[in-house]
Design a protein around this nucleic acid. Structure first.
Lengths: 201, 201
DNA sequence: GCCAGACCTATCCTTAGGGATAGGGCGTTT
DNA sequence: AAACGCCCTATCCCTAAGGATAGGTCTGGC
């Protein structure tokens, strides 16, 4: 059973999160309402498998509080609870090593998924905040190939894709072929699955 | 701006919900106090993005009222307002396709989150009520169809799948066709994506 | 026994997918 | 200007995919 620390000065948010997580039986949840308390808890009971921090909370001082908590938590993931968070803060937070963001608006199911994700070491953030992962491999895809890939991923035929993009079917075929090559796929179905796996749809 | 219909015969509940939602500026809210009125409103002004129904309300007759409303609302989400609701009713409601439950005790912020969630197509329900995602439909897939589906999901051709499963290619084609039909897929690629989405690979 | 459903195979036919090659237009880089 | 990459189109050809229909075995349930 994972140990999770929820630090938020809003009673409602804190208790709701804790209740969700405990109800699912995936975690032993501790709560607190400011940064100092959080540090004390970590120091007193050892590192948590995941720490969820409210960005607007006594003692946070922007990301400084988060980095302090991260240092205290010995490398285990620390994420922000984001009511609404600016994209700059989000980028900086990810830069600083945050494990992700838990929107307060998240459904319980998604919350559990997100928490599992982060405990496992993955980064969880709203897609809009994630910057392109390594362009090294996927960057190979040209814009047009991406358009076609999106069509392929929804199960459209070349003809349908051509209609949507206002192209000739042959052109779509060309893009499907080159795009599949670049992804190392055997065919369109394979390409679609690879795209889904790498989340580049 | 989303259009929401709140149907509850308790003035207080109805007006409180409507006030919360309109105050947040996320929705254009219409209200009514029985099932017949709700149906008339939907018929008169078109489908709503979300309909919130009191389970104990004139004309509901258990879940019948809800299913009628769902039919009228053209597939857009319909949820129940639950003062307190038994787990059996909750399960049946989810089974019948309800988008979730809005506890009357919910805070305004959580309410807004729940509503956004449901408008977006997610299901919102107290964690304790959520069970495994729909095995109902996928259960239709026979073991052999699952085998074939796995092959399709790795981008294998019918020939390759046939070799692996020690079948004739025609047989694989048959399975691909019926399996795709059952999943509501247009073709193998679509089937693969649907399978991946529903995590039934 | 009979029936239903899953499973496998077959034949026939049409369309879609994919490989190869070739060329023109266009904007950027060198 | 020349080269490059992306984009679009075209033609030829072959294979894969998918739709329709039909008939076969084997199993579990009534």
């Amino acid at each position: 059973m994972a140990r999770i620390l929820v630090a938020d000065d809003h009673d409602l948010v804190r208790e709701t999160l804790a209740a969700y997580l405990e109800a699912e039986g995936i975690a032993d949840v501790r709560v607190c309402s400011d940064v100092a308390e959080a540090e004390a808890l970590i120091a007193g009971t050892g590192a948590f498998d995941l720490v969820l921090l409210d960005y607007n909370m006594p003692g946070m001082e922007g990301l400084k509080g988060m980095t302090r908590i991260m240092a205290a938590n010995a490398g285990r993931p620390v994420a922000l609870i984001s009511g609404s968070i600016s994209t700059e803060v989000a980028e900086d937070a990810l830069e600083a090593g945050a494990a992700g963001f838990v929107p307060k608006t998240l459904s319980s199911r998604s919350l559990v998924a997100a928490v599992r994700c982060m405990i496992g070491g993955d980064i969880f953030a709203p897609v809009s905040l994630i910057k392109k992962p390594e362009l090294g491999e996927e960057g190979l895809l040209t814009p047009r190939e991406m358009d076609v890939l999106r069509g392929v991923c929804t199960g459209q035929s070349n003809k349908e894709i051509a209609r949507v993009l206002d192209l000739q079917e042959v052109t779509v075929k060309l893009h499907v072929k080159t795009m599949s090559r670049k992804l190392g796929a055997k065919n369109r179905t394979h390409a679609a699955m690879i795209a889904r796996d790498r989340k580049l749809i």
